[in-house]
Design a protein around this nucleic acid. Structure first.
Lengths: 123, 123, 123, 123
DNA sequence: GTGGTCTAGACCACG
DNA sequence: GTGGTCTAGACCACG
């Protein structure tokens, strides 16, 4: 899986990596149990410090997406806990996005379509 | 319109205010042409630094949501430019949220419903 | 509140600090809403790097014990979420400690007494 | 006795095994003088490196829980030294656990009950 | 070889 | 002035 960093983004690097890995797991590009690159390998590949990648892996671990051990490196967890609900933070974000889109003249059907595409992994 | 600051949030205060005003305009709570509180009044009401509110107003102005003049203070613009599309940043956010929700076992219909509720201003 | 680091301990420094602050909050030595030392001040006082203190504060924040903002520094949260249960990790630890103590010939009453002393903040 | 490794745990494997054997001795599942599996057998059974099991046995030996000889392998000691006190490390852990549980709204009686259950080997 | 911890030092956004 | 992010580099325990 290729990680792409937008150096002009306000989103911190460790969070950009985190987001892309979560999206990779959701889309199936990263499979359950699959090995992630080592901290050092990923840091080298992206061209950043390994502390930054390490931070990402620790967040993903604390969120229950991956597991790490010193022998095998990091792997996608076989079973990810399903809360069944959208987090409050994500709901807030969703409301903000809907408000902005609505003011931009976007119809709700367009947002639905985008969500279905993301959900199905089509794009 | 009442602005509520979540002091536990990682979202900067000026951005929390900005988001709530945008959502207020979208929901109709803030009408086209409506007067916003003065920088000082709003700062006093929320209990924060005037500089923070000032920053919010400058952003809202640069985004085309409000207009300011020295005589009348800040007002919601009569007509807000409609790009007709969801911004790339919001698309990225949407994809992240969909991925996380999907991994949490949320069905797409639930996300649709939430969006319709936000869009219609029901909640 | 005085933080004491045991440099010979296997417990990482950031975790030693974390534990002492949590115990300080529980005992009442650190009160709800009370200001914690700044990252730099505490680092200087203990004689460690500020990154290490920063890591501690982020953990305490993610655990819901404290809040941080760039204006005021870190403060003990006014209300700490009460799960009402002992975490599974702590239960495991408790079982290990009870097993070892039992094999050392310690009576259960002695453990009870210790717990009451810790709970009441007597020691 | 069945040893179960939690691959998601931060506790090193050799320590997980060590803890389970100590708890097995305390509960009586492992009797005084009882033969432990050979290093190789246990490593094979758990599916880990023999070095790891070997490390566990050395620790248990140095702690006075087991004895090893080349002929008979490892056995639970007939008499385990009773210090009569809770170790300082365990006291520290206990205080931390009590503090966290207290902040979670757990009553001291609940902790007592848990300890009695562990002590009596009921659970 | 792997992730985890820690340091010294720098720069930045927020307020 | 504050916490947050990031780097370059080092050492360590685990396995």
């Amino acid at each position: 899986m290729v990680i792409k960093i937008d150096e002009y983004s306000d989103v911190p690097i460790y969070m950009q990596i985190r987001n892309q890995i979560v999206m990779g797991i959701s889309s199936g590009e990263l499979k359950a149990g699959e090995q992630l690159p080592t901290v050092r390998a990923l840091a080298l590949e992206i061209g950043i410090n390994s502390m930054t990648v390490s931070k990402t892996y620790q967040i993903l671990k604390s969120e229950g997406y991956i597991m790490t051990d010193r022998k095998n490196g990091a792997r996608v967890r076989m079973t990810i806990e399903k809360s069944g609900v959208i987090s409050d933070e994500n709901k807030n974000e969703l409301r903000r996005i809907v408000s902005e889109s609505r003011l931009s003249g976007v119809a709700p059907e367009e947002i639905h379509k985008l969500i279905d595409d993301y959900y199905s992994g089509k794009i």
